[in-house]
């Protein structure tokens, strides 16, 4: 390597490469820009407590987004995500009410070992995911329609579950502290340095999903199916099996998210999780997941979720009126994708 080569590579590091960096990481820059902008206007936004708070909220949302994200990559979609979160939250909450709480949903429920309610709720998510996967894979019903159906079914099921004798429909409250601690507690030394449980759990899930998408055959198959399902089938990918798996994993994630949502808020109603699927899909799309399949990264999904939650929190802190919050969010979704899509346009 001679000096001239070195000089030319130095040149490459100039404006052109900065431009390339910007276009490749546009979405991260949007996030950073938002954080800085809101922080300048309202410094309390950048307080540790508030940032941790945003991360806590994002943790649940990120788990849902990664569940939907995998499905989006296979050219699918999952509209039942939000309602499944709600169903799981209701199941988890109903089985973890304090024994001395007067209005228990199951008056004679014994103190269950912590893990049972969690398993029950997550299993409900798995069942919904399995159903979606089977219908999409074997009945060839388009995912949009399949999950539109299950969205309504799951909401009905959650309402039926909550509206039971002897007390009928009511918000489920009075949750055990060992359960809510899952969503509100932290690991570490109090007042010195501690990380909220939710963030740790979300980090673990993120690592697992990253490995799954990037290092396993399943992950490669998911991208292959999304890129071109016929070609994937021809090259020996069992499309049906992989599709079912990706919906089941999605269901698992919604179930887990529902458990954590109930734990964080200390209760649940059958209305929990409403429209979360749209937030999750929007977050994925903002994060560069292509709705036409085959493209998407875990980092992108997380960035999308963070942009959403930074906005949700930031606009409240800025004191923006509720109506303008909606308009601002909508505009930023469109703007973020418009900026991000330039990297694909440039390639053509």
């Amino acid at each position: 390597m001679g000096n001239t080569d070195f000089a030319s590579s130095l040149k490459k590091l100039g404006p052109a490469s900065a431009k390339e960096f910007a276009s490749k990481n546009a979405i991260m820059l949007v996030l950073a820009g938002l954080v800085i902008l809101i922080g300048i206007v309202q410094p309390s936004f950048l307080s540790i407590d508030n940032l941790l708070n945003i991360l806590r909220i994002s943790s649940v949302r990120a788990i849902i987004a990664m569940g939907v994200g995998g499905i989006l990559i296979t050219r699918g979609t999952d509209l039942s995500a939000g309602r499944t979160v709600g169903l799981a939250a209701c199941i988890a909450a109903s089985l973890t009410q304090r024994p001395d709480y007067v209005s228990k949903m199951f008056p004679d429920l014994p103190l269950l070992p912590f893990i049972l309610p969690v398993l029950a709720a997550v299993s409900a998510g798995l069942v919904v995911g399995l159903f979606n996967g089977l219908v999409v894979a074997f009945l060839n019903v388009p995912p949009f329609i399949t999950t539109l159906g299950t969205m309504v079914i799951v909401y009905g099921a959650a309402s039926l579950y909550v509206d039971r004798p002897p007390r009928g429909a009511q918000p489920i409250g009075g949750l055990r502290e060992d359960f809510t601690n899952l969503g509100t507690g932290s690991v570490g030394l109090p007042d010195v340095f501690s990380i909220p449980n939710l963030i740790i759990l979300a980090a673990i899930v993120t690592v697992i999903i990253w490995v799954m998408l990037n290092k396993t055959r399943l992950g490669k198959n998911i991208y292959a199916i999304g890129g071109n399902p016929e070609a994937a089938a021809v090259s020996g990918v069992n499309v049906k099996k992989n599709l079912i798996l990706v919906y089941v994993i999605g269901g698992f994630m919604y179930g887990l998210a529902g458990v954590l949502l109930a734990a964080r808020s200390g209760g649940a109603t059958n209305n929990y999780g409403q429209m979360y699927e749209l937030d999750a899909i929007a977050a994925c799309v903002i994060g560069g997941v292509s709705t036409s399949g085959g493209i998407g990264t875990v980092a992108g999904m997380l960035t999308g979720v963070l942009i959403f939650e930074v906005l949700n929190n930031g606009l409240v802190i800025l004191g923006v009126s509720a109506y303008w919050q909606q308009i601002a969010k909508g505009l930023i979704i469109i703007a973020a994708v418009a900026v991000d899509i330039r990297k694909y346009l440039a390639k053509r």
Binding site: S44, P171, I317, S321
Partner: peptide, 21 residues
Amino acid sequence: DTAMWDRVKGQEKTAAWLAKF
């Protein structure tokens, strides 16, 4: 601010206010 009668939204808005005020 509006929290649409919702527990989770009420929690999130209040958390933001506590950070600010």
